[in-house]
Amino acid sequence: KRPMNAFMVWAKDERRKILQAFPDMHNSNISKILGSRWKAMTNLEKQPYYEEQARLSKQHLEKYPDYK
């Protein structure tokens, strides 16, 4: 399994927040909201998630050095 990218790292927690506020919302609508919010964020706001992506990628490479 591939490591999560920056968007997926961010969306994991954001999806939970949306589901808590709107428990009956369909997944497709949640995904649209998440995509819009991510696009509206600045690079500075996204930076911590890119850093986490890099950490996860490094960890994955160490754990699975032959992964293609």
Score class of each variant (00 low, 15 high):
residue 1 K to E: 15
residue 2 R to S: 13
residue 2 R to P: 11
residue 3 P to W: 09
residue 4 M to W: 06
residue 5 N to R: 03
residue 5 N to V: 03
residue 6 A to Y: 00
residue 6 A to E: 05
residue 6 A to F: 01
residue 6 A to Q: 02
residue 6 A to S: 04
residue 6 A to R: 01
residue 7 F to N: 05
residue 7 F to M: 03
residue 8 M to F: 10
residue 10 W to M: 00
residue 10 W to S: 00
residue 11 A to S: 08
residue 12 K to W: 02
residue 12 K to R: 12
residue 13 D to E: 06
residue 13 D to S: 08
residue 14 E to V: 12
residue 14 E to M: 14
residue 14 E to L: 10
residue 15 R to G: 06
residue 15 R to I: 09
residue 16 R to E: 15
residue 16 R to V: 13
residue 16 R to T: 09
residue 16 R to G: 11
residue 16 R to I: 13
residue 17 K to G: 02
residue 17 K to Q: 06
residue 18 I to S: 00
residue 18 I to P: 00
residue 19 L to A: 11
residue 19 L to Y: 04
residue 20 Q to T: 09
residue 22 F to Q: 15
residue 23 P to V: 00
residue 23 P to W: 00
residue 24 D to S: 03
residue 25 M to F: 04
residue 25 M to L: 09
residue 26 H to R: 12
residue 27 N to Q: 11
residue 27 N to H: 06
residue 27 N to K: 13
residue 28 S to T: 12
residue 29 N to I: 12
residue 29 N to F: 03
residue 29 N to H: 11
residue 29 N to R: 12
residue 30 I to P: 01
residue 30 I to F: 03
residue 31 S to W: 14
residue 31 S to R: 13
residue 31 S to E: 15
residue 31 S to N: 15
residue 32 K to I: 08
residue 33 I to P: 00
residue 33 I to G: 00
residue 33 I to R: 01
residue 35 G to F: 14
residue 35 G to Q: 15
residue 36 S to R: 11
residue 36 S to K: 13
residue 37 R to A: 10
residue 37 R to L: 06
residue 37 R to Y: 01
residue 37 R to I: 03
residue 38 W to L: 00
residue 39 K to S: 12
residue 39 K to C: 11
residue 39 K to G: 09
residue 41 M to V: 02
residue 41 M to S: 01
residue 43 N to C: 09
residue 43 N to P: 13
residue 43 N to K: 15
residue 45 E to Y: 02
residue 45 E to C: 06
residue 45 E to I: 03
residue 45 E to L: 05
residue 46 K to M: 01
residue 46 K to L: 02
residue 46 K to D: 01
residue 46 K to W: 00
residue 47 Q to R: 11
residue 47 Q to T: 07
residue 47 Q to S: 06
residue 49 Y to W: 07
residue 49 Y to Q: 06
residue 49 Y to H: 04
residue 51 E to I: 15
residue 51 E to F: 04
residue 52 E to P: 02
residue 52 E to C: 04
residue 54 A to S: 10
residue 56 L to A: 10
residue 56 L to R: 08
residue 57 S to T: 15
residue 57 S to W: 06
residue 58 K to V: 09
residue 58 K to L: 10
residue 59 Q to N: 15
residue 60 H to S: 10
residue 60 H to T: 10
residue 60 H to Y: 10
residue 60 H to D: 13
residue 60 H to G: 14
residue 61 L to M: 14
residue 61 L to W: 09
residue 61 L to C: 09
residue 62 E to M: 05
residue 63 K to N: 09
residue 64 Y to C: 13
residue 64 Y to M: 15
residue 65 P to Q: 11
residue 65 P to K: 10
residue 66 D to A: 08
residue 66 D to G: 11
residue 66 D to E: 10
residue 66 D to M: 11
residue 66 D to S: 11
residue 67 Y to L: 12
residue 67 Y to V: 12
